[in-house]
């Protein structure tokens, strides 16, 4: 069984929900990322979404745009990130790692070469925000052949017909974008999310992670009551930004937020 699937199954058996942190790889320096991944697992992370920086992050708000700029200031490349995952896997065999970003830094490697290298490094899934399932027809079999899950987004604007299509195209989990906007924008409306998640459940079989607008333990707890997973990104990347000149403080700052979320979710 693939790592993401077994992760959600184990959590379901324990009646717990997945805590899924997102950080941009190489932010603010490359050496920070692998220790941070371990620290996040220690603080209660179940799955790690590792951001692949891009020069033109169209779906991101200012917090993650700046993270991309910091990571690209010293040329963090897709290959560097695969090396980070490989190093992480030396001491962690269980926590799924999903690479999240934009298509171009992956496409430039060639999809087959990327899929092989990613699987070898120990990556479990990819989430490319500017690759809707209609455009993924050629890419998906190459990822599948290497055991990589393709995770797709569902938005508040997604029609029922598309939810079905996305549910069939994807594997691992579905990422429900809780609001219209970019990452790190407004606070989500829990009632709205609850009703949308219910709709998605009726149309698709995959576990549902919810992201965008989850800022603290309270919102993480509220979302965990309705979804299978809680994705938190900008709130953590903010901590990295605040500690960018004192990288040693990053693990505690990020870990602190995650622990609080974990406790609230498990209550």
């Amino acid at each position: 069984m693939r790592r993401i699937e077994s992760c959600f199954q184990r959590l379901a058996d324990q009646k717990r929900k997945a805590l899924i942190p997102f950080v941009t790889a190489g932010d603010p320096v490359k050496e920070v990322t692998v220790p941070l991944m371990h620290a996040m697992v220690d603080a209660g992370a179940d799955i790690i979404e590792l951001g692949v920086p891009f020069s033109d992050p169209m779906a991101d708000g200012p917090v993650i745009q700046l993270a991309c700029e910091r990571a690209l200031a010293h040329n963090t490349s897709t290959r560097d990130i695969l090396d980070m995952v490989k190093t992480f896997r030396e001491t962690n065999a269980d926590t799924p790692v999903v690479l999240m970003g934009y298509l171009n830094p992956v496409e430039v490697m060639g999809y087959e070469a990327f899929a092989k290298a990613a699987a070898q490094a120990g990556v479990d899934g990819v989430l490319l925000v500017d690759l809707p399932p209609e455009e993924a027809l050629d890419v998906k079999p190459l990822m599948d052949a290497q055991g990589l899950d393709m995770i797709f987004l569902v938005a508040p604007t997604t029609s029922d017909a598309r939810i079905k299509l996305i549910g069939q195209a994807g594997s691992g989990y579905l990422y429900y974008v809780s609001l219209k906007g970019v990452t790190g924008s407004a606070t989500l409306n829990v009632d709205e999310v609850a009703s949308r998640v219910e709709t998605i459940r009726n149309l698709a079989q995959l576990p549902i992670g919810v992201g965008f607008g989850i800022k603290d333990a309270e919102s993480a707890q509220a979302v965990s009551r309705v979804a299978d997973g809680v994705v938190v990104g900008s709130a953590l990347v903010n901590q990295i930004a605040e500690n960018k000149d004192t990288p040693n403080a990053i693990n505690d700052a990020v870990g602190g937020i995650l622990s609080a979320m974990r406790n609230a979710m498990d209550q």
Binding site: M58, A59, D130, P132, E135, L153, A155, P156, T157, T158
Partner: peptide, 20 residues
């Protein structure tokens, strides 16, 4: 029909915009 000129073109946007 999907906006392709050979290998070029297409709709590479985040899901929120697909409906629009």
């Amino acid at each position: 029909a999907r906006g392709h000129f050979g290998q070029f073109g297409g709709s590479f946007v985040s899901e929120t915009l697909m409906g629009a």
